[in-house]
Design a binder for these strands. Structure first.
Lengths: 210, 210
DNA sequence: GCATCAATAACATGAATATGTGAATAGTGC
DNA sequence: GCACTATTCACATATTCATGTTATTGATGC
């Protein structure tokens, strides 16, 4: 069973190199190599590729827009982005558009085929330097967890607040009196330096306390 | 210039295999191989590794806690996590703790050395299936979500709610009557299918409406 | 012109929330 | 033992919120 690869790459010599590499490798078949994204959907519909190699920089429609367009019609199609730039924004945009992986053009031929194979198999190959940027952004988005010194019970009550529960519901869920719920919430407000349910919920989610 | 590698791995045979692999490869030196994280900081201080190979599952302190501890003292140290599990939570926790990369134990020896080298050079190698999980989470976190067909004014009011503002404050901020604020919020509740400020704020943030 | 809708505004009522005061019990650490 | 804290519960009061009903104005679309 061959992996059907389609190429979108505006640089002619590179496009032909890749074509030759894929064409000459057992287990791979190149079902199209185009210099831009005109008739994109038509090409894909007719030649049914498994994996698409997509350059980011191209005349006309760029690679990121192409990914978005393809994702709508073919949610399971694998799209491997390829670029000479390590631009963080381009990387993040590609990923959010639905790219399956992101590799740099300085990748060695052997590694290149590995990447295509891994993409086909559902993995998300990334050049290490690209992965580094993604990881940093990821850690940044998820880590800034402040503490505020909330007790376990207070965290529990705060979680309930975030779920949108009323005092009464929280009291029932925690098997305590509504008066006790009030006390906990009062203490939470003091520790968080807020004065309303809205502020507390907002801070709880944004600062990832819960 | 050799890359100084230190190993933390509780499985003896695997630990020794890795030791032999690194020891026998030109350009690599193994400066320690331990079965748990006792005396972790002391080992690192004395043997000054460039890259640490850290198992996730270990008796005593687990790999993720070890990463956190190391990151505080050695912010630039490279730490490559290694595990048999593709557990999403473990992966995300490791990354947020400050791991440099995350590879699976079924990695081939040749690839293994590549990964260590890439880590040393500042990259963030990830097994493709791991990268896939990270990418999915990443795309989910950054992609704008549903719309709910809110009008501009409603979105504006909702933003104010998320900031924790009361009806009175919103009225002043938007230069409208508090009665109008009520109407907008009532309509927002209908469109979001919620019945309280808390639920609305929670949904607004989590579904990235604002 | 006429229907539709977003935005504006007012009034009323019951429910929920914010905040203060006061107090009992149980566990921790020194 | 004693100080400290988490957790529990009660009462009181002013404010805020949820919801319904009703209505005017301006912009959009057909």
């Amino acid at each position: 069973m061959e992996i059907r690869v389609m190429i979108f790459e505006d640089n002619q010599s590179l496009r032909e190199s890749i074509y030759q590499l894929i064409h000459g490798s057992p287990g791979f078949a190149c079902v199209g190599a185009y210099e831009d994204c005109s008739h994109l959907l038509e090409h894909v519909r007719k030649n049914t590729p498994d994996v698409i190699l997509m350059d980011i920089q191209m005349p006309g429609m760029n690679g990121i827009e192409a990914v978005k367009m393809l994702r709508e019609k073919y949610p399971d199609l694998k799209i491997l982005m390829q670029t000479i730039f390590e631009d963080s924004d381009k990387i993040f945009q590609s990923i959010c558009a639905g790219a399956s992986g992101y590799i740099l053009k300085n990748t060695s031929p052997a590694r290149f085929l590995d990447f295509i194979k891994e993409t086909y198999e559902g993995g998300a190959p990334m050049s290490p330097s690209v992965a580094k940027k993604v990881l940093n952004k990821f850690a940044k988005q998820n880590s800034p967890k402040k503490d505020f010194n909330l007790s376990d019970r207070e965290k529990e009550v705060l979680s309930c607040l975030v779920k949108g529960m009323s005092y009464k519901l929280i009291a029932d869920a925690c098997f305590i009196s509504i008066e006790t719920v009030r006390v906990h919430i009062k203490n939470i407000y003091n520790k968080l330096h807020v004065h309303s349910k809205g502020e507390a919920i907002s801070m709880a989610i944004k600062d990832r306390i819960v």
